Amino acid sequence: MTTSTKKTPRKRKHATTTYSIGGVEVCRNTFQFLMGICKSTLTDIIRHFDENGARPRLSKKSQRPQDPHFISSEQLRRVLKFIKNYAEDHAIMLPGRHPDHRDWHVKLLPTHV
């Protein structure tokens, strides 16, 4: 909504978007260049965010995420379970604790892993 003391508030036609890289505010063209995306893709992402919030973009045909590297929550749980089981079998305890180090369950995996 617009904020004005003289006129009645009304819905804005275009939202203001700020772009930042590493905490530094940059212009839209610099953001597009550094992220390697074209103008239409960035516009589509902004429109999708305004309509749906922070959700993955879905393909219209299959209703699956467009990102081919998308991992479902079930797959993520299975990966975490595998890493924890592997670390339990092959990791070594971290030698030499610092006095301020609270977690003593820290384990190291061999470098070739």
Results as ranks from 00 to 15, higher is better:
1 M>P: 04
2 T>Y: 09
2 T>D: 10
2 T>F: 04
3 T>S: 13
3 T>M: 13
4 S>D: 13
5 T>H: 15
7 K>M: 10
7 K>F: 12
7 K>H: 12
8 T>Y: 15
8 T>H: 15
8 T>Q: 15
9 P>F: 07
10 R>C: 09
11 K>G: 05
12 R>A: 15
13 K>R: 15
15 A>W: 03
16 T>D: 10
18 T>A: 15
19 Y>W: 10
20 S>G: 06
20 S>M: 06
22 G>M: 05
22 G>T: 03
23 G>Q: 12
23 G>L: 04
23 G>R: 08
23 G>F: 06
24 V>P: 08
24 V>E: 15
25 E>I: 09
25 E>Y: 10
27 C>Q: 09
27 C>P: 06
28 R>T: 02
29 N>K: 15
31 F>Q: 02
31 F>A: 02
32 Q>W: 01
33 F>V: 08
34 L>T: 12
34 L>A: 14
34 L>E: 15
34 L>K: 14
38 C>Q: 10
39 K>T: 01
40 S>R: 09
41 T>N: 12
44 D>W: 02
45 I>E: 03
47 R>F: 00
48 H>Q: 01
49 F>Q: 02
49 F>C: 02
49 F>R: 07
50 D>P: 00
52 N>V: 00
53 G>C: 05
58 L>Y: 08
58 L>M: 12
59 S>G: 08
60 K>A: 11
62 S>E: 12
62 S>P: 01
62 S>Q: 05
63 Q>G: 08
63 Q>K: 13
65 P>Q: 00
66 Q>C: 13
67 D>W: 03
67 D>H: 03
68 P>C: 04
69 H>M: 07
70 F>E: 01
70 F>A: 00
71 I>C: 01
72 S>Y: 00
72 S>N: 01
75 Q>R: 02
76 L>H: 07
76 L>I: 02
77 R>I: 00
78 R>I: 02
78 R>Y: 00
78 R>W: 01
78 R>A: 04
79 V>F: 09
80 L>P: 01
80 L>S: 07
81 K>R: 10
81 K>E: 11
82 F>W: 05
82 F>A: 08
83 I>E: 13
84 K>H: 13
85 N>I: 03
85 N>Q: 11
85 N>R: 10
86 Y>N: 05
86 Y>K: 10
87 A>F: 05
89 D>E: 14
89 D>K: 14
90 H>S: 04
90 H>P: 01
91 A>P: 05
92 I>Q: 14
92 I>L: 09
93 M>E: 14
95 P>D: 07
96 G>I: 02
96 G>Q: 08
96 G>N: 13
96 G>K: 11
97 R>A: 09
98 H>R: 15
100 D>K: 10
100 D>F: 08
100 D>Y: 06
100 D>L: 08
101 H>E: 15
101 H>G: 05
102 R>L: 13
104 W>G: 07
104 W>N: 12
104 W>R: 12
107 K>N: 02
109 L>E: 07
111 T>D: 11
112 H>K: 09
112 H>E: 08
